[in-house]
């Protein structure tokens, strides 16, 4: 089977490939000729390395992430499980409000689990969460994730969640935010209040917010 291009992301292109009689996703951070070559090289390598480590680390902490099968740090490719499912973003407009609430609760809980292991995702949009046929939530795209997360960094993560709800799911944003934060608070523990107030503070920081 020839590689099939699945999508062009911000940093990489995703292909479906076949190996050992099975299907895998191949994430390729290829060169971007319009960037300065040194900046481009550093970003591609740093993020490929980081993504591999984070995918594994997150799974060790009970978060569902694809398994890595091969890495090439010269070409900056990662071969990982191909997850059959739908982006949370695509499901939002077509599912019942009850199922949406339940998925958002899970979304918040998953993020809290990650934060409890002192990692922030860095790009927690509804494009980066995949729902499989068992309604399990898979987390992808750890290229912007960071270790040693402080309350400030966790607040930024939540701010980004709120932002994507406002821009992409504006018609159901209140219900989604409520369910997501409920799930988040149920799992994060004592730090909840501190992080939520950080989220508010960060929102006020934008130029006209």
């Amino acid at each position: 089977m020839r590689p099939i291009e699945l999508s062009i992301g911000a940093e990489s292109t995703i292909y479906k490939v076949e190996r050992w009689g099975k299907e895998f996703a191949l994430k390729w951070r290829h060169k971007k000729p319009y960037l300065h070559p040194e900046i481009d090289r550093q970003l591609r390598t740093a993020r490929t390395t980081r993504e591999c480590r984070m995918l594994n680390f997150a799974r060790l902490n009970g978060i569902t992430t694809p398994t890595i099968h091969a890495v090439d740090l010269t070409e900056n490719t990662i071969m990982m499980d191909y997850i059959k499912g739908e982006q949370l973003k695509q499901l939002v407009p077509v599912i019942s409000s009850k199922r949406l609430r339940s998925l958002c609760f899970d979304f918040g809980r998953t993020l809290a689990k990650l934060h409890n292991s002192n990692v922030v995702h860095g790009d927690p949009t509804t494009s980066n969460f995949i729902v499989d046929s068992h309604d399990d939530l898979w987390v992808l795209d750890f290229g912007l994730a960071e270790w040693n997360a402080t309350a400030e960094m966790k607040g930024v993560d939540l701010h980004l969640v709120r932002r994507v709800l406002e821009t992409t799911h504006w018609d159901v944003q209140e219900a989604m935010l409520e369910a997501t934060l409920k799930g988040y608070v149920s799992t994060i523990g004592d730090e909840a209040e501190h992080i939520l107030s950080r989220m508010e503070e960060i929102r006020e920081r934008g130029r006209y917010h």
């Binding site: 062009i8 911000a10 940093e11 300065h36 900046i39 970003l43 790009d123 949009t125």
Partner: peptide
């Protein structure tokens, strides 16, 4: 370069 990246992220997302 930073601006390019967030533009790409918005294009990929929207």
């Amino acid at each position: 370069g930073m601006l390019a990246e967030i533009s790409e992220r918005a294009l990929a997302h929207t």
